[in-house]
Design a protein around this nucleic acid. Structure first.
Lengths: 335, 335
DNA sequence: CCTAAAAAATGAAACGTTTAATTAAAATGG
DNA sequence: CCATTTTAATTAAACGTTTCATTTTTTAGG
């Protein structure tokens, strides 16, 4: 009807106001449902906006309000199979609230971590969901009063979402004891992070109590076992393995197979993380499940609440883990 | 020295200009290295900016210039093991050029795809890297003249980065023939996408020429085989399998094992994609490698060039694939 | 009816940049 | 040394919003 379309370009608030025969201010109030606008006017503006296909310019809005409705997600390594599900749920949960997510990974480097954070802050993100490399608060000087939610690590300043790793470690150990094993080896993952260290320590503690701890070794977070670990795994000193990370557990299975040992007939194994690979192995890897999906969702919820109420007291949310039985646990061989 | 720090808030260009005793315009010119600014002045401004820790407000810049130096990445499914490496490289390559990346996945739904695209466009991204669900140009009406780079699909309007799937399909088939197999089954993945269909068709064609095609079936992109496929895989009608996707190939291995058949002693298998899981299986899955990392990098390069020169002629880049031998190919059993 | 109060609508400033148009200063050359 | 050109610096407008302070209109109360 009215030939108000402004030649090609995306319509602006001014265009809407003009077309609706109303001031820019009123148009803004109407669209944002604030201020005092008459019912008829409001409806009319909305209708005109819809007709013109008006979409607010978020850059302009951001500049004026100082809020971008974007958040940053900083992860150690996207190709680590643990993270994609987390990222996915963060992105989806954010979208529910009309937030968009800048995703970055830092390849385990502190410099990259800082660079990423700087870039995001400069972009004006309203908050950060941060899975730090280790427990150090390497961004302390950068984040200032920016809302930050920290995942699976310790941090003295920010909201925390963590996992009850102790209970996970215990569950794994207890399951193997219950299966009748009496010589159980423990392989722990990265040792510079409390949440990782503690998984295996809890296992070890339980095993010690039952006098069933064969040995306790470390391995990098990797499919390849270090020689000492590989040797221990295959030398028959343990009939079962409690491993602090699925990826390492899969590596252990691989090593065992290469040396002609069968899982679970000769050696039982329980991992930790429940990464998707585990379900695809044959037999499926028994493991401790971490509710990554829920963590992702809760991370954005918590962060958005913090953005809304910056002064509310700090939160620390701890998620339960569960044991998922698949095919890598059996009674010890010479039963 | 000079007590010009503006009480807590992030310093603005005005603060820099003030502190440097120069106009805002000059400060802007100096920092962006444009316009005519004296060498001394330029250095001085830079120095002051550094001292104050000035970082431009990107929202303001975006509003003024219409460029956000952000791009969007739209993927079908982040938890599909094929994508994280791609996403990672896109993010890193973008950062090299001071671009940030909004990552979204669409869970295979066309509506989600459109919603994601809309959100990104509204955000004012300078361009899109899009791995569509299928070959339909479902965003045609949304993208307008926005630079878009399409991955692994066909599209009549945008720059394309594709894979030489034909050669991949042929390589796989030829490798199995060369190993001595004469009854080879083909399982193709999703059939509604050319690039996926063609993988298996190329394999089948080669096999037909050698009179070695036992059968050609379809399976959804999934670890679980459909009953008919599972039956064919295990009924001895084929001594080798040419599979259009690693995930399905792993599912086939699993099915074979469950029915007491060994890989590769009884049945040889070659997959397609080279997803990370494959390397972790035992034995490792022989497969066709797609250079996802390079594709990710080249995607942002191509997109950024397109953003810079919107009128340049359309590009179509085709990446070679390679065969990677691991442990799932052997001569046929009754050799 | 008139006035006071409440509701609706508006004008204009502000957010932090970039950049076109302008002016001021310095360099060049006859 | 003056006129001209080149170089350097400045002023001010503009980008698309939100929102404060005002003005205009409507409603209510006596």
């Amino acid at each position: 009807m009215t030939k108000d379309e402004n030649s090609g370009k995306r319509p602006t608030l001014k265009d809407v106001a003009l077309a609706a025969g109303v001031s820019v201010a009123t148009a803004s109030y109407a669209l944002n449902d604030v201020g005092s606008v008459g019912g008829d006017t409001r409806r009319h503006v909305l209708e005109v906006a819809a007709r013109l296909g008006y979409r607010p310019n978020l850059s302009a809005k951001a500049m004026r309000t100082g809020k971008t409705s974007a958040i940053g997600l900083i992860l150690p390594d996207l190709t680590n199979p643990f993270f994609p599900a987390l990222a996915q749920n963060v992105v989806h949960a954010a979208r529910e609230s009309a937030y968009s997510v800048f995703v970055t990974d830092t390849q385990g480097s502190h410099e990259a971590e800082r660079a990423a954070a700087q870039a995001l802050i400069q972009r004006g993100v309203d908050g950060l969901i941060w899975f730090p490399i280790n427990d150090e608060d390497t961004l302390a000087d950068l984040t200032g009063s920016l809302p930050v939610l920290v995942l699976d690590r310790d941090n003295p300043r920010h909201d925390l979402i963590q996992i009850d790793v102790d209970s996970g470690g215990r569950m794994a150990a207890e399951r193997l004891i219950r299966a009748g094993h009496q010589r159980i080896g423990v392989i722990s993952g990265p040792t510079d992070v409390r949440s990782s260290r503690q998984r295996s320590e809890s296992s070890a503690e339980v095993l010690r109590r039952h006098d069933a701890l064969a040995w306790h070794l470390h391995n990098a977070y990797s499919f390849d076992l270090e020689p000492a670990v590989a040797a221990a795994v295959a030398d028959g000193s343990a009939t079962a393995l409690c491993v602090g990370a699925d990826l390492i557990a899969l590596g252990a299975i691989n090593t065992l197979r290469q040396r002609g040992l069968r899982v679970p007939e000769d050696v039982s194994i329980i991992g930790f993380d429940n990464i998707p690979y585990g379900a695809l192995a044959f037999p499926g890897l028994s493991t401790i499940n971490i509710p990554v999906e829920e963590m992702g969702i809760e991370a954005v919820n918590t962060l958005l609440r913090r953005i809304a109420k910056p002064t509310e007291s700090r939160r620390r949310l701890v998620f339960d883990v569960t044991y998922v039985e698949r095919g890598t646990v059996a009674p010890p061989p010479a039963a």
